[in-house]
């Protein structure tokens, strides 16, 4: 794949990073507006089913709010976040932990292609550089740099994601962590960030909903799965309105439809 260079002065959000002069970026003609409203979604390589579910729930909301999802293109949480973002029709930026001219691994080729095809961006600060133990923490500062906010999905007690969290605090970017079960190793890091007051807990599907109440249809679906007809009868609303609401809720990933019945995801 072809790439080009970009002068760091063209991206004011990164100009504060020391010793960073240029970035390598692909595709050659990229959408500059993608950098306007970015949110970093990062987490562990060892993603649990809980982490997977969280990503499926919150990314569609972020996309609907017009945000670009930034992540680190590593397997686990990062790649799944890119993937879901593309599936929802959103834009995503992948920051590589290695040189841009290095060939992609077999398992990464498809995702990389998908990102480019869906108007996404892949970038790196190196041209030729093998992935190494020191390259990954370094690229985290770029992830945080271009993002206005950072969400940590899952992180163990000693995790690279905690480095990202520290960088976010240093760069004064709002930091969110998704709380998890106290029994889960993969939520120890995130729970600790919340406990220590470093991160705010992300406790609902979207940011707007962090405090507001749920949609009445979602409340009805919390305990049983129902058809559109049953929901119309229970809420005493015209079917056309219920139908429209259900579509929006499905598109934002709050509920799912299976064989004509809706349930909370």
């Amino acid at each position: 794949m072809n790439y080009t260079t970009i002068n760091i002065n063209d991206l004011p959000s990164l100009s504060t990073i020391r010793k960073l002069k240029t970035l390598y970026i692909m595709p050659k003609t990229y959408d500059k507006t993608a950098f306007a409203n970015c949110i970093a979604v990062v987490g562990s390589r060892r993603m649990t089913s809980y982490g997977r579910e969280v990503i499926e729930k919150i990314i569609p909301h972020l996309v609907m709010e017009g945000k670009t999802i930034v992540s680190g293109f590593m397997y686990g949480v990062d790649q799944y976040a890119h993937d879901i973002c593309i599936q929802c029709g959103g834009k995503t930026i992948a920051v590589l932990g290695w040189g841009i001219a290095e060939p992609f691994k077999d398992t990464d080729v498809l995702l990389a292609k998908n990102i480019i095809e869906h108007e996404g961006i892949i970038l790196s600060e190196w041209e030729y550089q093998k992935p190494s133990i020191w390259t990954f923490p370094l690229r985290n500062r770029i992830i945080v740099g271009i993002s206005q906010e950072v969400i940590i999905i899952e992180a163990a007690e000693k995790s690279g994601s905690l480095i990202t969290a520290d960088l976010a605090i240093q760069m004064k970017k709002p930091l969110w962590a998704v709380p998890g079960p106290i029994t889960s190793v993969m939520s120890k890091g995130t729970n600790r960030l919340i406990a220590e007051g470093k991160a705010r807990p992300w406790i609902d599907m979207s940011k707007q909903h962090q405090s507001s109440s749920e949609h009445p249809l979602v409340a009805l679906l919390a305990h049983e799965s129902l058809t559109a007809n049953e929901l119309a009868r229970k809420t005493n609303q015209p079917i056309e309105q219920v139908s429209a609401d259900l579509t929006i809720l499905v598109l934002s990933g709050v509920i799912v439809e299976r064989n004509g019945k809706y349930s909370v995801q």
């Binding site: 569609p60 609907m64 593309i86 599936q87 029709g89 579509t247 598109l251």
Partner: peptide
């Protein structure tokens, strides 16, 4: 926009 999101999903 809604249609585009649906088309992807």
């Amino acid at each position: 926009q809604i249609l585009k999101v649906a088309a992807q999903k």
